[in-house]
Every structure is written in structure tokens, then in C-alpha cells.
Amino acid sequence: MDVRKFALDFDLSPFLFCTDSVRGSRIVRAAVDLGVFSRLAKEPGTAEQVAGSLGISVRGTRALLDGLTALQLLGKEKASYRLLPIAEALLVPGSPDYLGDLVQGSVLDQEWDRLAEAVRNGGPAEGVEAVERQKRAEEFFPLLIRFLHVVNRGPAIAAAHALGAGASHRGLRVLDIGCGSAVWSLAVGHADPEARVTAVDFPGVLAHTRRYVERHGMADRYEYLPGNIQEVSLPESEYDLAILANILHSEGEAKSRRLLGRVAEALRPAGRIAIAEFLPNRERTGPLDPVLFGLRMVLNTEEGGIFSAEEYGEWLAEADFPVVESFEIGSHSPLLVASRGKK
């Protein structure tokens, strides 16, 4: 399989800016609500043509289309607007990677209004029952999986390369813990056609995982282990590589250390642990994205948090994985790869 088929051929930064910016997200949401991207997917058009087909004002349409052009979602030539590849892939309903509903529903920022209360309580705001939080999580998670699958595809390809998948390491037996869309292990699978993966997550999540695996033609190379990652039984000494991508931050320190110990037992003597996480410096003064993500953990979890590479290194050493390397993968933080360092 060609890993290039797994990659995105456009820069994601305009969309990431829109999801992370109040003005940007509101502009994109208005365009989704009005059907602007669907209209331009049919054919390019001037502000007058787009406004006429949608039954909205020319003045407002022109300003909106210019805003979308400035956001690098549309192209403009001689007063005619067209979709750029990023908008065509992510903002036209029916696209495999459609994320318009993520922006449209304002799910990325609705919890931030509760930040002061969450800080006061040291966790999710009081007055929101656990059942209600679970309901919100279940509604949001399918959207989150789609978002993370898109934004992590490039870093996942870089991670597979750093791990030597298909090059220095072939026929990998991979354990994907808290797999979500399986974007990280799918990248390994594309690079190493002989790789086989065991994907671990809640049953409701694995229903979505299967669809992504089938979409990428790897249904016969995956098996599934449903359950809570803290409780599911893992076979001993069976895997060459364990992937923990963007999962430990939600578990917190105690659970993460316990989980790393269990994962270590599931690996062969030469096995490795790959951790993709938000990594602040030890003083938690930067980088900005990881540090601010720590507040997201206060908003949404009881125990979750952000931890430095040094802290993960200490926990990995406890699990008898004392050798830790880091690799830049084009993400907010480097990939950590740990081994026992023994022959």
C-alpha cells in the first residue's frame, strides 16, 4: 500500500486557525449554515451568483466570501470564488473527511464558558451531572475522532517513518491503546504491509475504528480488543510496538503509570513504546498549545493533565523502558519512543 494515499495533500493550518479562533470559527460556521461550501462545490461563482442561488443578500455574501478567501479556504479570480482543496475536503457535506458539523455545532468552544467554575472546583463544573457529561461525550466523540483523524494524519505518517515501519522494522505486531480512529497504527500499516494491529478501546469507539480500518483497506490486518484500557486483559510478551497516542493526558498520572506498566508486560524483549502527547516543558511555561491544553483537561476530566517528556521518561524507566528518544513529527510536540535498551 502506498502511504501517499493516506496523506493529505494540502496545508491544514487555515482550518486549524478557524477552529481555534473565535472570529474564524464563526465565519466558517455561518458559511456552513448558509450552504456556501455546498454551493461552490457545484461550480465557482461571483458573489451575485452565490447570493442568488442561496437567496441571501449580495452585500453580506460578498463580505463573507472575502472573509473565507482571507482565511485561505476559497480562491478568488476576477470576482469569481472557488473552493480551495482544504475546503473541498473538509467543509463539503458528503466528503469522507467532512468536519463542517464540528465547527457548526460549536462543540470545540462551548465548555470554555465554564472555565472559572472548573478552576474553582478543580475539575468539571459542579451542577453538570456525570450522566449529562457522559451524554455530551458520546455525542461529541464521533466528531472528535473525525477531527483527530484529519489533523493527526501527517504526524502519524512522520511517526511511522521515525519508527522504521516497513524499513528497519517489518512485520510489526502493534498494540494500539485507546485507538480512536486508529490513525497512528494505520500509518504504520501503510508503511509496513506485513504489520498486524490489535486495537483497544471502548466497544462504542471500536465501531467507528472499524469503519476507518475498512476505508483504508486493512480489515484483514486488524483485530479488536474492546474494553476500558485500564482493565482490559493484555496478552504477555506478544507485541513489538505499543502506541499510546493522545490518551495518557486524559488518564492522569497514577493511571498512566499503571497503564505503562501493563503495556510493558505485553511487549516482547525488543519491543518499544511510542507516546504521542501534549508535552510542556518541565516548568509548564510553554509551549503554548500543550500548556493551554492543560486547562482543557481541567474542564473535561477528573484526573487528566499534561506531563513533560522528563516525567514520562521517569514513568517509562519505572516500567523498565529507560531509553527514551524523541522525534519531531510536525506536531505540537515530538514523539517519544521508549525501549528497554537491552539486547
Rank of each mutant, 00 (worst) to 15 (best):
I177E: 10
H161A: 15
L335D: 08
L175T: 10
I27G: 01
E132I: 12
I247W: 02
P155C: 11
R211H: 09
P85A: 02
R272I: 05
L73W: 02
G305R: 06
R262W: 03
R133L: 15
R340D: 05
A7W: 07
A51S: 15
W112M: 10
G271A: 04
G171E: 12
K342Y: 02
K76G: 03
D66C: 02
S38R: 13
P280R: 01
A182P: 13
I56N: 04
E236I: 01
E238F: 01
P322C: 08
R173F: 05
V263Q: 05
G35N: 13
L108E: 09
F140K: 13
V174H: 02
L186D: 12
G252V: 03
R258P: 00
D240I: 00
F10R: 01
F141L: 12
K135D: 12
I243N: 03
I86A: 00
A182L: 11
D109W: 11
R146E: 09
K343C: 03
L64E: 06
E251D: 00
E253W: 01
V183A: 15
R196T: 14
E277T: 07
V50R: 07
L248A: 10
V232F: 04
L244I: 08
H216C: 04
E325C: 06
K78N: 14
L65W: 09
D97F: 01
A137G: 14
F17I: 10
I229D: 03
A264C: 05
D176I: 11
D320A: 15
S181T: 14
R257G: 04
A116I: 07
T46H: 10
G164N: 14
F10E: 00
E88Y: 00
I275C: 02
S21W: 09
H161Y: 14
A51Y: 06
S57K: 06
L64T: 09
E283G: 03
P85G: 02
R114D: 15
L68E: 01
V128Y: 12
T69I: 00
A219M: 09
G171D: 10
K343S: 12
E314A: 13
N228V: 04
A165C: 14
G261N: 03
R146S: 15
E314F: 01
L34E: 13
T46C: 07
I243M: 06
G341H: 08
A51C: 09
W184N: 10
Q49T: 11
E48N: 09
V22K: 12
R257Y: 04
I177P: 08
F327I: 06
G189T: 11
